[in-house]
């Protein structure tokens, strides 16, 4: 994949930069990294980070130090579908351990691992602000809440179907 925003992505990048005073363009770094991660395969390679640095006229190190600080930036490739299951207190008392366990068994991966077919990555994460609708996980842009084993089955099925359509 060549690392270069297409026209739509570039227009979005410009919109992000325009929100800040001319001399403080660096403020667009985090939104720009989100855009880059979405545009280039769901993770930030050093090539991607260097590209963002160049666009914002800052040093690559300024990008690396930010990318490594924030948990939403993936510094390694991840599966096509990233299951981020919350396991902080309120979710834990509402049964998140069982959900994590069930996903592990179902997909034969541990937290932090990706399935051999590259489709699924499981990650345990800290509170996502959905504590009243626990157990829950983030999948892409949206939350999946009130999780049960049946719901997990349906989500996995849905992902497999979507992956088949997109191939």
């Amino acid at each position: 994949m060549s690392i270069k925003f297409n026209d739509t992505q570039m227009a979005e990048f410009k919109r992000l930069v325009d929100r800040y005073p001319q001399e403080y363009q660096k403020s667009a770094l985090i939104p720009a990294l989100h855009l880059a991660q979405e545009s280039f395969g769901g993770w930030l390679s050093s090539e991607t980070m260097d590209y963002v640095a160049e666009l914002l006229s800052i040093k690559p190190i300024e990008v690396y130090e930010v990318a490594t600080f924030y948990s939403m930036f993936n510094l390694k490739p991840v599966g096509k579908y990233l299951f981020e299951v919350c396991h902080t207190g309120p979710c834990m008392v509402s049964g998140s351990d069982n959900i994590v366990q069930y996903i592990q068994e179902k997909l034969s991966i541990k937290p932090g691992e990706t399935t051999a077919d590259g489709l699924f990555t499981l990650k345990t994460v800290e509170c996502l602000g959905a504590c009243g609708y626990a157990p829950m996980m983030q999948l892409g842009k949206h939350y999946r809440e009130h999780l049960t084993k049946e719901k997990v089955d349906a989500i996995v099925e849905e992902c497999r179907k979507n992956a088949a359509i997109n191939n």
């Binding site: 985090i30 939104p31 990294l33 924030y70 948990s71």
Partner: peptide, 10 residues
């Protein structure tokens, strides 16, 4: 008014 997203950091 501008909206800026963080990236996962309490």
């Amino acid at each position: 008014i501008h909206v800026q997203r963080g990236a996962g950091a309490y």
